Simulated scan of single mutants.
Amino acid sequence: MSQKCPRCGFIHNCYCEAIPTIASDLCFTLLTHPNEPSRATNTGKLIDKLFDDCTITEWQRKSPCERCLPDTSPYSPVLVFPCEESVPLAKWHQKQQGAKSNFIVLDGTWQEAQKMLNRSAWLKLLPKVHLDSAELSQYQLRRNQEPGNLCTFEVCAEITREVGNEHDANAMLTFFEDYLLRFQAERSGHALTR
C-alpha cells in the first residue's frame, strides 16, 4: 500500500515538486469558516504553502483575530470582499504608497463568507477592496458557484496580479491548473496519467 506524502497528504499524485517559488512578500490572513478545514476541496491551504507571510485562522464571530485589527496588525488590514463600500484593489494599493497591506480573505463558500461578514461587527469596520478581475474560475470542485466567483486560491492569485506581480500570479495559476488535475485523479484513487 502506498504512503501518504507527509507534506501534501496525497498518496498517488504528490504535488510538492510542482509548488512554485513565489518571490512576492504579500501578507495574507485567511479567516476560515469552521466548516472549511475538513473539506478536501479547501484551496486556502495551498496559499499557506506558497507565501511566507500567510496565516490561517478560524473565524470567530465576536473575537477578532488580532492580526486583522488596525491597532494590532503589523500591516494595514483590508478585507477583500466585493460590496457597496469596497474600492478597487488598485486604488487601495496606490493610496498605500508602498506601505504593506494585510489582505484578509474569507475562506469558505461564498454563502458562508457573506454570513461571516454579516455576523461580525468587527469585520464590517475594516476597509474593503474588490478585485477587477475578468478571469473565469478554473475551480469546479463545488456546486452552486455563480459566474465570477473565484475560490480562495484564485482570489490570492488575482491580488498578486493586481498589485503588480504578473509573473508570480501566472505561476500560481499554472500550478493551480495542475493541482486540480492531480486532485481529481487522487479523489478517484489513481495516479494522474498525461
Rank of each mutant, 00 (worst) to 15 (best):
T32M: 14
D107N: 11
E66T: 07
G9K: 12
H190T: 06
R194C: 09
R61F: 01
L192W: 09
Q3H: 08
L181A: 15
L31K: 04
E58N: 03
E177K: 14
F176R: 07
E162C: 05
V78E: 05
G148Y: 04
W92C: 06
M1H: 13
R119M: 08
R119G: 01
T41V: 14
C65R: 09
Q114M: 04
C65T: 12
P37A: 07
I11S: 14
G148K: 09
T43S: 13
C27L: 00
A157S: 15
A40P: 02
D107E: 07
P70H: 01
E135W: 00
L106T: 08
A134Q: 13
S38I: 00
T109K: 04
S188D: 15
D168V: 02
S133E: 06
C83F: 01
A121C: 01
S73A: 11
K91H: 06
A134Y: 11
S120V: 08
L46E: 08
P82H: 09
D52N: 08
K115I: 04
V155H: 08
L31H: 10
P127D: 07
A134V: 11
H93P: 01
L69E: 04
S86G: 02
L89N: 03
L131V: 03
N13Y: 10
L192V: 04
Q60V: 00
C68Q: 04
Q140C: 09
N118W: 00
A113P: 10
K124S: 03
K49L: 12
R182C: 14
C16G: 09
Y179Q: 11
N35K: 13
K4M: 02
C156R: 06
L79G: 09
W110K: 09
L69V: 01
N144M: 10
K45N: 07
N102V: 03
E112F: 02
G98D: 13
P88F: 04
Q111A: 10
V105L: 07
L123P: 12
L180A: 12
L89A: 06
E66S: 14
D107T: 07
R61A: 08
C14P: 12
F153N: 03
M1C: 06
L89P: 00
V163C: 10
L150Q: 05
F183S: 14
T32P: 00
C54G: 08
S76Y: 15
T160E: 06
W92H: 14
A169S: 12
P127N: 04
A90C: 05
E135V: 10
S63W: 00
Q140F: 01
T174H: 02
T55P: 03
T160S: 05
E177D: 13
E85M: 04
Q145N: 12
I22T: 02
A121N: 07
T29F: 00
C54H: 03
R187M: 07
Q114A: 12
W92E: 08
N13T: 05
K91G: 01
P64G: 02
E177F: 02
G164I: 05
N149T: 08
G98T: 07
A99E: 12
D132V: 08
R142F: 05
L123I: 07
L180R: 11
N118S: 15
D132M: 10
I11A: 14
